[in-house]
Design a binder for these strands. Sequence first.
DNA 1: GGAATTCTTCGGCGCGGACCGAAACGTCCG
DNA 2: CGGACGTTTCGGTCCGCGCCGAAGAATTCC
Lengths: 236, 236
Amino acid sequence: MTSREPQAPRLARLAALIADETRAACLLALLDGRAWTAGELARHAGVAPSTLSEHLGKLVAGGLLAEERQGRHRYVRLADTRTAQLVEDLVAQVSPGARPTPRSLREAGAHSAMARARTCYDHLAGRLGIALTDALTGRGLLRQDTGFALTDAGLGWFAAAGIPLERTGRRPLARACLDWTERRPHLAGVAGAALCRHALETGWCVRIGSERAVKVTAAGERAFLDLLGVEAGSLR
Amino acid sequence: MTSREPQAPRLARLAALIADETRAACLLALLDGRAWTAGELARHAGVAPSTLSEHLGKLVAGGLLAEERQGRHRYVRLADTRTAQLVEDLVAQVSPGARPTPRSLREAGAHSAMARARTCYDHLAGRLGIALTDALTGRGLLRQDTGFALTDAGLGWFAAAGIPLERTGRRPLARACLDWTERRPHLAGVAGAALCRHALETGWCVRIGSERAVKVTAAGERAFLDLLGVEAGSLR
DNA sequence: GGAATTCTTCGGCGCGGACCGAAACGTCCG
DNA sequence: CGGACGTTTCGGTCCGCGCCGAAGAATTCC
């Protein structure tokens, strides 16, 4: 059998897009679900703007990024949830079993804030994401023993909490996303995104700094306790 | 923010392992779930044995492949189900919306056999995988509307059919795997693997040739009809 | 209109890595 | 014990690509 698999070149070309450290840094930064300008990404990655411009060209051409031009700015974001999920899966694969020792105090602070609570593209992750997922499961709202799906009671909980779940396209309502700090699954999919969006809109959580880390507010602490019995005090 | 994401180098290095066309061809071939020798892979990929030896060294060192030495042979296989799932996800991302036109009759035949029924590492895919998944869903044994999980009736069906489901480690019982020919989810996870294994052991399906394609036998046609009402005649 | 900002294009440099063939090493078999 | 086979190591070649700086295009601000 000398016939080369027909999709080998495509697979290699896709992986090559991620196989560069600068482009990988961009994809990781964009996991916050927001749109960044080319200049921001260049500073973030520590390369010349001209270099980063070429990288963006490749990522957009490869379908990993979507771009939107506004005046002299070029905003890019991850193309879709599937792409974000793919990057998360890759990160989970390389997530170290042993936690790496941070080099500086600032890194240590940033790392622990990320481990506490952060967004994973469009849903909540970190210890907060795990705690909410565990609470949903413990109350019979989410079923993990036979797969990963909301129960009928779970559908009712979202409705009662005033969090609308839009059945759009083929995206699953609930889906497991492997957390790279906790190494445990947490809620993603339509329900995960809706919960995160609601938490940010109602002020249960606010973003810290310019990246993915978030923190729980006083209002959020009350809400998570009332609605799910989650003690989120340590995640403030 | 000039701090580079700490896991960017790791992500890039992982992707670089897949970013070579020869290594990609190896990973795709190994998606059949079996162990190949270095020589077989070299012939399959169309490169010199010495070249392929170096590739295998990198893939093993990178944790994507597991190796087993037997005499003068070096057998390699995908390291674990998570790695297989990752490769499948990457393939799904690049799966062409428009079917590519095969270049030769033999390729066309191989492609259509793969589209009919094949294994996806350790579970069934292609039109057969979709048909079984649809049947399970239609009979209330698998729930896809709120995620992707077996129902209690589904657990009973597996027990009644004599297909044991081993709850091992963290691997989910049911999980969706996106099919790259049908562009629809089909059953993976512990249940998908158990069903595939049972189908091959009882002779419901047999492998065609040396790769992933399988075909349904007469016994399999009866079984699928009796157990799930699936008309698998066109998949023989 | 002119200046500042943001991004892109281009030429050129240098490193990394994929490839091969030749030779060495180990294993199996007659 | 010698020959066939599968695999590995090594030296050498070559191409791809990531990087920069300088110059150019587009847009906004004053």
